[in-house]
Computed example of a mutant assay.
Amino acid sequence: MTDREDAAGRAELGPHDGAPGRRDHASLAGLRARGWTAGLVRQLLGEPDLLRVNPYSVSAPPTRLYRLERVEAAEQGPRFRVVAAATVRRSGTASAGLRRRRREVSARAAAARGEAARSGAERQDTDEAGP
C-alpha cells in the first residue's frame, strides 16, 4: 500500500494505520516545507516512526514518515528555533552574496562590451584614414 500526501507532505494513512483520511505523519518533503533541514531531522527526530513503500518508485528507498506529534513537539523546543534561525541567517547571507556576485559579473560583462565597442570604433577610424 502506498501513502498519499497533501501539499505539506502529511501522509494520509489507510484503515490499517489509524483513522481513514487522518493525517498524522509527515514525510521528509513535508518537513522541508515546514523549515526542517536534513541535519535537523537527524539531530532532533532521529529514526523515522514509519517506513512505507515509495509512492513514486517501488525501487526507490522507502518513504520515511515522522509522527506529527513528535515533529510539532520538536518545533516548539529551543534547539529547533536556534538552528532554524541560524539556517535562515545563513540562507540570507548566501543569497546576498549571490546577488553581489551577479552584479559584479554583469558589471564586468558591461565593461567588456563597452571596451569592444570602443576598440571597434577605433578600428573604423583607422580604416577610414586609410593609407
Rank of each mutant, 00 (worst) to 15 (best):
V41H: 04
A84C: 14
L40F: 11
A33G: 12
R79C: 00
L40K: 01
D49R: 10
R22C: 08
N54I: 04
P61F: 06
A107G: 04
D6Q: 15
R102S: 11
R52A: 08
D125C: 02
F80Q: 07
R34P: 00
W36S: 04
A86K: 12
R103G: 06
G35L: 10
L51V: 05
E115Y: 00
S95L: 12
A110S: 08
E5A: 15
A109Y: 05
L68Q: 09
P48W: 03
A86Q: 12
S57M: 02
V105L: 10
R118V: 05
G114F: 10
R70W: 10
E47F: 13
E115R: 04
D125R: 13
R67W: 14
G9R: 15
V88H: 01
G30C: 07
R42N: 09
G21S: 05
L40E: 07
G21V: 12
P78Q: 11
M1K: 10
R103H: 04
V71C: 11
A94Q: 14
G92D: 08
E12P: 01
V82Q: 03
D6P: 15
S95V: 02
S95K: 13
A29G: 03
E128P: 05
G39I: 09
Q124C: 06
H16Q: 08
T93E: 14
T37P: 06
A94C: 14
G77E: 12
V82F: 03
T87C: 06
R79F: 08
E47C: 08
H25F: 15
S27T: 09
A117R: 14
D24R: 14
H16P: 01
V41C: 06
A109T: 04
D49G: 12
R90H: 12
A74V: 00
G92P: 00
G39F: 10
H16L: 05
A116R: 14
A111K: 08
D125S: 03
L44H: 13
A29I: 02
G35F: 12
R90S: 02
T2M: 09
Y56T: 08
L98F: 11
D3I: 15
V88A: 01
L50K: 02
P15M: 04
Q124I: 03
L40V: 15
G9C: 11
F80E: 08
Y56F: 14
G77M: 08
T37E: 13
R102K: 07
S59E: 01
R99Y: 12
H16M: 02
P20M: 04
N54P: 02
T2C: 02
A112Y: 00
A38L: 12
R32H: 15
A107Q: 11
V58T: 05
V71K: 09
L65N: 14
P48C: 04
A96N: 05
R100E: 14
S119V: 06
R103E: 05
S57R: 12
V83N: 00
R52G: 06
R70V: 15
Y56L: 10
P55Q: 07
A11C: 12
L31G: 02
G39C: 05
D49I: 01
E128G: 09
R113V: 01
L51D: 03
E69G: 07
A117W: 00
R79S: 10
G30I: 15
P55D: 03
R100M: 05
S119Q: 09
G97V: 13
A7K: 09
R52E: 06
A107T: 07
Q43I: 10
E75K: 11
L31H: 07
P62A: 11
L98Q: 14
T37V: 03
R52Q: 04
